[in-house]
Amino acid sequence: MARFGMVIDTKKCVGCMDCVVACKTENNVPEGYNRDWIVTAANGKFPDIHLEIQTQRCNHCDYTPCVSCCPTGASHVEDFGKIVLVEHNKCIGCKACLAACPYDARFIHPDGYADKCTFCIHRVEKGELPACVSVCPTHCMYFGDLDDPNSEVSKLLASRKNHSLIPEAGTLPRIYYLT
C-alpha cells in the first residue's frame, strides 16, 4: 500500500497562495480558516537576502501524536496512502490533537470538529492530484508514493537537496522542501 507524501520545490514557488485558495474552494473551507498556508522566511541584510517560501499544511506524519492523543478515535490513519484524517462525527472538538500537532496544522471547524488537510483523499482515490498540487501555476508541487522508488517524489528526493519541517519533533513528516 502506498505512503503518500509531497515534495515542494521552493526554487520555483512564488508564494502566490493559489494552493491556499484552491484548497478553500475544493473543500469548502469556511471563511476565516485555511487548511494550508504560506510562510516566507527572509534571512540576511539588504541587499544580500535569502528568501525561502514554503506552502505548509498537515505533514501526514508517520508517527502521529494527533492520532495517539485522540480520545474517541476520530483522528486516524487511513489504510489508503497512510493519509491522516479526522472522522467528523466521532470528533468531540476537545482540541487535544491541536495541542499535539507540532505544525499547528489543525483548527476547530465552526461545526465543532477538528479539521485539517486531507491530502484531498476524495480526489486522490479517483487518481487525481490534491487540489493544491493540481492548481499550482508554477508547477512547484509534487505528490506521490514515497515508498515507490520510481515515483516522481522519490526521484526528486534522491536527486535534490531537501529538508522537512521541525524534524526534531520526531513525527517523521512526509512533506519535503527542495532547496
Binding site: K11, V14, C16, A42, F46, I49, I53, P137, T138, H139
Partner: peptide, 28 residues
C-alpha cells in the same frame, strides 16, 4: 508570464532583477 517565469527558473535561465525592493523575483 508567471508560468513561463517558473519554467525559466527551472531551466536555470540566468535571471537578473533590478528593483529597489528585494521582490520574490529577486529571490530567484
Amino acid at each position: 508570464q508567471v508560468q513561463e517565469f517558473a519554467n525559466a527558473v527551472q531551466n536555470d535561465s540566468t535571471i537578473i532583477v533590478v528593483d529597489p525592493r528585494f521582490s520574490v523575483a529577486a529571490s530567484k
